[in-house]
């Protein structure tokens, strides 16, 4: 990634984080997707943890299917108040084509259940030659992971917090959907992406948090940006690039300070009129 030595690294929540694969650093195992991001500190929000699993994905899919996902999961999980799977941001060691996390996060609940009840009992599931495998089969630890106990809550997780306990404005997916209005009350557009700068408070020992620096506001219904509006040079399919740029010719960028923080619900309110904001092409 292009992190200039003197300036902090800049990422976009939608483009670089949301829906990316999360990989366990120690053995390259695939853990989950970034189904959502949890923010902390309303005044100066920064990314606190990655949320994953059906409890985080369901609300993003929405509609009856999303509710079904959440409902079924809550019904089937043994805990009283199941929360989404979360990974603290300080465990994240690399953000690239996948998000690599250190530490020793355990697989998700469904994976453990399917492993113990469906795949484990089938002969040969542990990958040994048939006839050679002994009694220890599906309850053994994945290679390189001594001490892991399926079904036990891990200390790296802050206990299960229901998704409902995380206020809307502290969920990235909620920010990404929101309508933005001018000081005059007119609709200025929709948040298409959230710009994150890695200069927030310290997480853990050495990592700085990704702080919410500003918002890319696109006219409603222009669709995703796909990163094309930030294209500089390089060969891109000219046609796709031109269409997306044309759709986003009226998109603007507002810093976090240019928004009124006193609107937790409903549309986000701009302090600066829309036409005085920086156009995306100037950014």
């Amino acid at each position: 990634m292009s992190a200039l030595p003197e300036s902090a690294r800049v990422l976009h929540a939608h483009l670089h984080l949301m829906d990316r694969q999360v990989v366990r650093e120690v053995d390259g195992r695939l853990l989950c997707k970034v189904d959502d991001l949890e923010l902390a500190d309303r005044a100066n929000p920064y990314v606190k943890s990655i949320l994953a699993g059906p409890l985080a994905l369901g609300p993003r899919i929405g509609g009856w299917l999303g509710r079904l996902m959440v409902g079924a999961t809550e019904l089937l999980r043994p805990e009283e108040d199941p929360g989404p799977y979360r990974i603290r941001m300080h465990l994240v060691s690399n953000i690239g084509s996948a998000i690599t996390v250190g530490g020793d996060p355990e697989p998700l609940a469904l994976e453990r259940w399917v492993r113990d009840h469906i795949i484990g009992p089938i002969p040969g599931s542990s990958g040994e030659r048939p006839g050679k495998h002994s009694g220890e089969r599906f309850d053994e630890h994945p290679a390189g992971h001594p001490g892991e106990r399926p079904g036990k809550a891990r200390p790296t997780h802050a206990g299960p917090t229901r998704l409902a306990d995380i206020p809307d404005e502290l969920r990235m997916s909620h920010l990404l959907d929101r309508v933005v209005i001018d000081p005059s009350g007119e609709v200025a557009g929709q948040v298409a992406d959230v710009r994150l700068v890695q200069d927030g408070p310290l997480l853990g020992e050495a990592t700085q948090a990704l702080r919410v620096a500003g918002y890319i506001i696109a006219p409603s219904h222009t669709g995703q940006l796909f990163g094309y509006e930030r294209a500089r040079g390089g060969a891109r399919p000219a046609l796709v690039s031109a269409i997306i740029r044309r759709l986003h010719r009226n998109s603007v960028y507002a810093t976090h300070e240019q928004l009124d923080p006193s609107t937790p619900d409903g549309p986000l309110k701009l302090r600066t009129p829309r036409d005085r904001l920086l156009s995306l092409t100037e950014l």
């Binding site: 695939l30 997707k33 469904l110 994976e111 492993r115 795949i119 599906f138 994945p142």
Partner: peptide, 26 residues
């Protein structure tokens, strides 16, 4: 299915470690 939901998939790991993937195939 696995790649959409971010599950561990593939035959390069033991079936036990890609349980949801193998269950989907089955």
């Amino acid at each position: 299915l696995s790649q959409y939901f971010g599950w561990q998939w593939g035959k390069f790991v033991r079936p036990l470690e890609a349980a949801r993937f193998h269950a989907t195939v089955l």
